[in-house]
Design a protein around this nucleic acid. Structure first.
Lengths: 158, 158
DNA sequence: TTACAGGTTGGAGCGCACTCCAGGTCAAGC
DNA sequence: GCTTGACCTGGAGTGCGCTCCAACCTGTAA
């Protein structure tokens, strides 16, 4: 398997594959007689896991760290597990934030629908600044000023 | 409220606040006699929502788009709602990916624990490359070569 | 044998999202 | 009056994560 094939199978560009190799995310592959990289199918498993780490918010430097540990074989099992456990915590925190955002969006979309329908909506119901449980401190539900008629009155982003 | 106070309350740096203003994420605030920015508390609601959009994966250019719509008042309600609905889809997709990653991590962490305990584990149970439902096509569970004794045999990342 | 697709290297360039800095202004307190 | 600290502007610099490029090499097929 040459780099072009791997690019196709992995979804990464050849440039990216070489870049990942350069920064140590991918192990240096064997070369054929002409000096071209030759890959084993198994590299796809690793690339896939790397992609998953990336898409769930692990940056390059952490992935580099993990990749370096990986090259050390069984001696690094514990260290790798620790990194994975840490990442697990991060992922589950991110999920909580996303869950909350879904609620915020749903409420906001609903508010917009009502406003589009011409209903007068109390801006106190606007959720754009709410924190985990209710509105942040120091903010009143109503803005009270600039309620000078159509246009800005009851805008969900005021 | 001056920019320093807002920085403290919002958690953004004064540089970032000015930067956000420059690129249109934040409306141009009033100035005092000395030319210094003066903010209304209500800006915090907007900053908070922007932060939420950002932390749930909306990039600057989309946020700029949204912010620009916001300046157009009621006329842009529908367009804004459309953007929010689109973002909602993205967020819920991201959540699905995170959920899946949690499973992958849990299985992998478990595998590591077993290996640390010295158990011989069949690499077929390794999940690092699995797709939505099972292992990707074209990959055997076992690698078969380089099983030359301790160290690389049954490594979860081979 | 010559065209051509696909590979090699090193290094430059880019878009995002800030972050920092120089050199200046302004207002309050001593 | 003078210092101090917060603020101002424009612009340069940074780190991440690629992406592109020039110049060259290799193997195959017409």
């Amino acid at each position: 398997m040459r780099i072009g094939d791997l690019a196709e199978k992995s979804g990464l560009s050849t440039d990216t594959l070489r870049y990942y190799e350069k920064i140590g995310l991918l192990p240096k592959p064997l070369r054929d007689a002409g000096g071209r990289r030759v890959y084993d199918e198994t590299i796809l498993r690793w690339i896939d896991f790397l992609a998953r780490l990336k898409s769930t918010g692990m940056g390059i430097s952490k992935r580099q760290q993990y990749a370096e540990l990986r090259t050390k074989g069984a001696a690094s099992l514990k260290a790798r597990r620790t990194m994975l456990e840490e990442h697990r915590r991060k992922v589950s925190e991110d999920m909580a934030a996303l869950t909350e955002m879904l609620t915020v969006l749903d409420e906001k979309i609903d508010l917009y629908k009502k406003m589009e329908a011409g209903e007068t909506v109390d801006p106190a119901f606007d959720n754009c600044a709410r924190t985990e449980h209710g509105a942040p401190p120091g903010l009143k539900g109503r803005t009270d000023d600039n309620r000078t008629g159509e246009g800005s009155h009851a805008d969900p982003e005021t």
